[in-house]
Simulated assay, not measured.
Amino acid sequence: MDIRTITSSDYEMVTSVINEWWGGRQLKEKLPRLFFEHFQDTSFITYENGAMTGFLIGFQSQSDPKTAYIHFSGVHPDFRKMQIGKQLYEVFIETVKKRGCTQVKCVTSPVNKVSVAYHARLGFAIKKGDKTVNGISVFADYNGPGQDRVLFVKQI
């Protein structure tokens, strides 16, 4: 498997598979082109035999340079359980550590139980929110009315 940083020309390739990789959930709008233009050196794509197997879009916070943020990551359904996501996270963490980051944050929806469990396995802690949904601490209306989110943090 090969890993490389993204380029702006990767936008169409990545966004064309998002809804399919997430079982029909409409998530393409969550990943605008600006990420492919402005966060290339902290965002990565994996390949095997010339085909994209996964990606991670992340950046170092301008407001808090000690913090890095993973905005979106995904692995092709046929390649899950092969540690591709874990490798992407490790490359990202190593990259941002070299830039002086001491923590990584990310957010997911409480309905995405796979994501919640995955981040816990990777050593991310759930930040205590202001409400509980299905036994998970969440921040109510984090992304607007009815848009509760689970916030994660990992010290690196």
Rank of each mutant, 00 (worst) to 15 (best):
Q155S: 12
Q87N: 14
C101W: 09
K127M: 14
F92Q: 05
I6N: 02
A140H: 14
F79D: 06
K128D: 06
V133F: 07
I57C: 10
L122M: 09
I3D: 14
V138E: 03
Q87P: 09
Q60H: 06
G129E: 02
Y118A: 12
K154L: 11
T7M: 13
V111T: 13
L88N: 08
F152A: 06
K105W: 13
T95R: 05
G123E: 09
H38P: 00
F92V: 04
I126R: 03
F44L: 13
T108Y: 03
R149W: 09
V91H: 07
N143D: 14
Y69N: 06
S61I: 05
S61L: 12
F72Q: 07
F72D: 04
Q40K: 15
H76A: 12
K81A: 14
F55S: 05
S8F: 02
K98S: 15
K28M: 02
P65R: 07
I136K: 01
D64T: 09
H38N: 04
K105I: 11
F36A: 02
D141L: 04
G146P: 12
I126M: 07
S8G: 05
F72V: 11
G54C: 06
N49V: 04
G24E: 15
C106V: 06
G24Y: 08
R121F: 00
C101K: 03
Q103N: 09
N143A: 12
W22Q: 02
D130E: 11
P110H: 01
L122K: 03
F92Y: 15
G24H: 09
F92S: 03
E20C: 00
I136R: 00
V114T: 13
I45F: 01
T102Q: 11
V150M: 06
A120P: 00
S63F: 01
C101T: 11
V75W: 03
G74L: 01
K66A: 14
S137L: 01
R99E: 13
F55R: 03
Y142S: 08
L31Q: 04
F35V: 03
F55K: 01
F139K: 10
Y47A: 08
I136Q: 09
Y69P: 02
K105E: 03
W21H: 06
Q147D: 15
Q26T: 13
L56T: 02
N143S: 10
D148R: 08
Q155R: 11
Q83K: 15
F124S: 00
M52R: 11
T53Y: 04
M1F: 13
H71E: 13
F59M: 11
K105D: 02
M52S: 06
A51Q: 12
D148E: 07
K154G: 06
Q87V: 05
G123R: 07
G85M: 06
T132V: 15
D41H: 12
M1R: 03
F44M: 04
K98E: 15
R25T: 12
V133G: 06
T42C: 12
V104H: 07
E29F: 13
K113H: 04
Y11G: 10
M13R: 13
Q155H: 14
S73N: 07
N19L: 11
R4K: 15
E90P: 12
Y118W: 04
V116A: 01
S63M: 08
V107A: 10
G24R: 00
S61P: 00
K128L: 05
K131M: 07
S61Q: 09
D10K: 11
